[in-house]
Design a protein around this nucleic acid. Structure first.
Lengths: 332, 332
DNA sequence: CTGCCAGGTGACAACGTTGTCAGGCCACAG
DNA sequence: CTGTGGCCTGACAACGTTGTCACCTGGCAG
């Protein structure tokens, strides 16, 4: 900047004025400075600028997701990126892999980096630690899972409704023995999906067979094993509800291995690419990632802009996408 | 920091020393400062610190990929993230969507932000503009597509070999009429895959039917149309090679729609989740994203660390994953 | 007792930028 | 001619931190 000022024969402050497009610089000076900037390939130092400016922003938001490479997280990040771009803001993303310690570390790191805001798909049960972090004034928005121990904005889908929709879809088609696989019951999302599943039965005066409802299924392989086991029962299920995207893959594999993929109905939770190319195409309860990302960004940038209204907890309705696997009728 | 110094009854510099774990501070002073830091919830300002320190790093690398939400890019980012973590560095990712202008803008933005390094999956044909950007000393590594107009490190797969492997796999199984779909011929990757495909034929004294080789297929839907059209020929292909992941989806759909998915062989390029759950499971030429990401990070951090050796152009061999669709024999 | 050294500490300048304010110039009204 | 006001411009301090160097203290050798 000093060099630019020297070359243009003006003071530092004038260069600053030109670079920041402030009013009140005569056209010829402006031109001289612009030329010097070009010639010397000068780039303002954002860090120094932020340091001096009062209430300056880093132009960065942090996003902690379960895994950058899984399709749900990746889609969310993409949606955030698009929204952030219009605020001239970049997205600094990191994967938690359900690591509770990692979550705390990364939040601390991001706050120290002075990100303008935080998007959090938490791995932890409770986030009391956040209270101290957020005292610095960094706003945070939760996504996919609601906050506990700290009251901030959140955007989640209606998991209760999602579970209910899946069960109703199958019950309406005559299924009475529906297996259901869920993730760890400590997770609110899994719990609500399970409740919705049960509620759909109760509404119709039915009761799910407890042996067919399995909690704590954590991986694709486990899901596959569980489905195999359930199909071995004397009175096997005629339909399966996989309460999470990776569990659906396991279920598909197991049904395929048994050769019953055209006989046992299957509904998954969370859509994924190619679900429509499976045989039969997979019926799923879909979360609209793009919309969720948009809402998250909306809340976050409102907070960054100074919104101090009470925290909002937005709930997005899932939709059921019928593709074939969920419309298989029960075996006679 | 001033407050911490006041509370601990020491000078600013001493606080700095304690925070940076420098030697030569008496234990009791260290303790007093640490306590004050805790009590006031003090966080060092990284930007200010970097400003003062000579040759300080921002602890950020920029990664420009085709689309953060596509499985190849997302996998790559994840691999980069893991490597960057061990260098206490964050990954700032953005999507190009094949936008050439966007590429230039974003690169400029990232360099101005003083990222420590740049990972680029370019959308542009040539990157002459980079020469000026890199004069600031920011190292860059290209991935998936080689640099043109600027000489920097790159990591790509052997696309020629990949195309050849796919063709050989099908030729070895007796196929003689193999359709092939490629992306824009202006892209080096597409061009090389095509050349490999042709070379495999030539090696065996064969020649691909030019009517079966289609360039410029840009989307899933287009791929589907093209396959339909080729199957309408009097002498239709007995196998299809889809030269890019999204083209494979289109091909699968078309074959499925014609009900010939168990009669016409199919080999895709680029693996994707669930490819093994399709019917028949999809045979693909796979790029090892994790390895590619690791190599990219290795080169980049070597450069950041001061490596000034001549640019390296690493080529990773693809592997062929046989799953079923590629092993269908030609119709009698 | 003096001189020296090592260890601990602080004052000050500097990093690259911008907010504040003062000053110079010119046009125009009185 | 003088005074007033508006338009440009620059000097200076400040943002939060760290590198440099000087200072102080106490211990120990001569």
């Amino acid at each position: 900047m000093r060099d630019v000022a020297a070359l243009a024969g003006v003071s530092l402050k004038t260069v600053s004025r030109v670079v920041n497009e402030e009013a009140g610089v005569s056209p010829d000076v402006r031109e001289r400075v612009t030329a010097a900037v070009q010639r010397l390939d000068y780039r303002p130092n954002l860090a120094a600028s932020n340091l001096r400016r009062t209430g300056a922003r880093s132009g960065l938001i942090g996003a902690l997701v379960q895994d950058v490479s899984n399709s749900f997280s990746a889609g969310l990040l993409r949606s955030l990126e698009d929204a952030a771009r219009s605020h001239r803001t970049g997205v600094l993303a990191a994967s938690l892999d359900e690591g509770v310690d990692r979550e705390q570390e990364l939040v601390h790191d991001l706050v120290t980096r002075r990100v303008d805001g935080l998007v959090l798909m938490p791995a932890s049960d409770r986030q009391d630690y956040l209270v101290a972090e957020l005292r610095t004034g960094t706003p945070a928005v939760f996504v996919d899972r609601p906050p506990r121990g700290v009251d901030v904005d959140s955007v989640v889908i209606d998991n209760l409704l999602g579970g209910r929709m899946a069960a109703e879809h199958l019950l309406d088609r005559g299924h009475r023995r529906i297996a259901a696989l869920f993730h760890l019951p400590t997770l609110t999302t899994a719990q609500l999906r399970r409740e919705g599943f049960t509620a759909a039965h109760t509404d119709r005066g039915l009761r799910p067979d407890p042996r067919l409802v399995v909690d704590g299924v954590a991986s694709t392989d486990e899901a596959s094993e569980v489905v195999h086991r359930l199909l071995d029962l004397d009175d096997p299920p005629t339909a399966v509800f996989a309460g999470r995207n990776i569990l659906a893959s396991g279920a598909v594999r197991a049904l395929r291995e048994r050769g019953v993929h055209h006989e046992v109905a299957l509904v998954g939770f969370d859509d994924f690419p190619l679900a429509d190319l499976l045989d039969p195409p997979l019926t799923v309860v879909r979360q609209d990632v793009t919309k969720i990302g948009r809402l998250v960004a909306e809340r976050l940038f409102a907070r960054i802009g100074g919104d101090t209204s009470p925290p909002q907890h937005l709930v997005v309705d899932p939709t059921l996408v019928s593709r074939g696997s969920g419309e298989i009728p029960p075996r006679a």
